[in-house]
């Protein structure tokens, strides 16, 4: 199977546009922003719905609790910042909202290393781990613009707390235009028989490139887009891995507590070889080039190819 990976979209822009669409369809949708609306693209919503847009300034703790108050009054609040600040600074506020299972949507922009210039303080590589640890939380990570739109819409429909990871940079479309996104259901992006890759976010694209490389060598790689990082359906993961000779996880996140942890635990007892491509328990750093940074942390096509060969050995 060949993929034409030509269409690039900016997930932030798609997110902002989707919010506006949702705003038109449902007046319960409200948006909170912590002074980053020009980059999270909530400015699009602000422009069309100034009365439903709440700028709270650089105060993420306040933002999450205000969102909780709005949610309990029947609104559907989307609270925005960079991933690292949206999850890290108001951790306790998010946690309390999850205890009450409140209908708040936390949207972390510039996830992973995608804010390449700003360095370690701005790069969210442990956000999935800390959000996964909170009961009642749902975590969604779109792989491209197409899926971003579907995921934001699904989050708005879902009644409960959700954290969405939004990529900063333009990324190629890898998911299908057709088909509904369903929370909790991983999707097969590419069929294959030898090895299965579980990936999310931009790493789905990297995985596809690795699969194409290996196809020439006669290795058949299946790719699964795990865009719901919580809840993980263990049965589906096991069935998707069964029959293969090995498993590789790929994520733009620390190796601790993210996709690697979730998949390895889901596949416990299967005897399958598992390798993880992830940030190896290190903080990020600045670079003028996103790809250079991904290379530094080993999130490359070559690293994925190497991991696949390792599980086949």
């Amino acid at each position: 199977m060949r993929y034409m990976l030509v269409n690039m979209q900016n997930c932030r822009m798609v997110y902002g546009q989707t919010l506006v669409e949702l705003g038109r369809e449902d007046d319960r949708i409200v948006v909170l922003e912590a002074d980053l609306g020009r980059t999270t693209m909530t400015k699009l919503f602000e422009k069309e719905f100034p009365g439903r847009f709440f700028e709270v300034g650089i105060g993420e703790q306040n933002m999450i609790s205000v969102a909780a108050g709005l949610a309990l009054c029947g609104k559907i609040p989307f609270a925005n910042s960079f991933s690292v600040f949206a999850t890290g600074r108001p951790y306790d506020q998010i946690r309390v909202s999850c205890i009450g299972r409140l209908n708040i949507k936390i949207v972390g922009s510039s996830c992973g290393l995608s804010d390449f210039g700003d360095g370690a303080t701005h790069q969210a590589i442990e956000d999935v781990a800390i959000m996964r640890a909170i009961p009642n939380m749902t975590i969604l990570s779109p792989a491209d613009g197409i899926e971003t739109k579907k995921i934001v819409r699904a989050a708005a429909r879902y009644d409960g707390p959700v954290y969405i990871r939004i990529l900063r940079n333009d990324v190629p479309d890898v998911t299908a235009q057709t088909g509904e996104f369903k929370i909790g259901r991983p999707t097969v992006i590419r069929e294959g028989t030898d090895v299965v890759i579980f990936a999310h976010g931009y790493m789905v694209y990297k995985s596809l490139k690795a699969a194409e490389t290996l196809e020439a060598e006669g290795i058949s790689v299946k790719i699964v887009n795990v865009s719901t990082l919580k809840p993980i359906d263990e049965k589906i993961i096991r069935s998707m891995a069964s029959g293969t000779k090995g498993v590789v996880t790929v994520e733009e996140h620390t190796i601790i507590g993210g996709l690697a942890s979730a998949i390895a635990f889901s596949l416990r007892g299967t005897g399958l070889m598992i390798e993880a491509v992830a940030v190896n328990d290190r903080f990020g750093q600045s670079s003028l080039n996103y790809e250079q940074l991904l290379e530094h942390y080993g999130l490359t096509v070559e690293a994925i190819v190497k991991a696949i060969k390792k599980v086949l050995r």
Partner: peptide, 29 residues
Amino acid sequence: PTRKVPGIEHNTGALGHGLAFAVGVALTG
């Protein structure tokens, strides 16, 4: 306090949350 109890609006006890939560409720009003 938890929302499971009739008459209680929101889970509180982790300090420093209630006022911001109330801001959200008042904004809605």
